[in-house]
Design a protein around this nucleic acid. Sequence first.
DNA 1: TATTCCCTGTGC
DNA 2: GCACAGGGAATA
Length: 264
Amino acid sequence: MPELPEVELAIRRLRPFVEGRVLRAVARLHPSTRRALPPAHVRAAVGQRVLAVARRGKYQVFELARGDRLVAHFRLDGDWNVGPADAPLPRYARLALALDDGRRVSLVDPRAFATVTWHRAGEDPVAGLGPEPFDPGFTPARFRAALARRRAAIKLVLLDQRVLAGVGNIYAAEALWHAGVHPDIPADRIGPSRAARLLDAVRLALSRGLDEPGRVFATAQTTATTHELMVYGRDGEPCRRCGRRIRRVVHGARGTWYCAGCQR
DNA sequence: TATTCCCTGTGC
DNA sequence: GCACAGGGAATA
């Protein structure tokens, strides 16, 4: 499911096709995209040149020439498809952008959870979003201060986009495993050294997702290949670090996998 | 702060 | 054939 790394890679693939192009038409192909993007907003965006596409957390921000923006969010399984405008639409296309070079960018999203919204110039389309995990200004001390304000389980707090932008269910579980932190620990009980370790672990887990797939890497504990998960979805399988069986618990209707042996 | 809802393919 | 999965907004 698209979290920060997958969204970043999707943007990198899309950029060469859309940056500098003019939006000739926007087709809303499903009730979900018609809800999120009313006709007036389509009219506002059509005819404008796309100056740049930026990422903020899991959001993709299309900067338009007049200063307004289209903002896409993949949610659970959205992705972009690029092809000629006269080709048949891909299966599960929920929205399509016709470009001035004859190409068409389609938002492909089987579950129709993805959104594309329009935001007037001057408006902050991602207000309230927390810091970027790789922002050098986001220090372990700031991370720890944010955690200290929260009593909920650290797993849930890592998913809170106001605390940290871009981490979802998979990378939260992976980061907690890398850091050796139990998912149920209350966030405000995480001290400075564990907060520093956890921030490093978040960055490590996200980096693995950004790496070339299949490259072998080693950490202090284990050797694996990039995009290979350490705990997520490995219910009952042995921990790659200590061999104990991975357990699955539920946090707010979402699965969390962890190792009771080395996450404390 | 906890629960519900939006959707539909996948896996039992 | 049906429960389940899940990010974020809305609701209680």
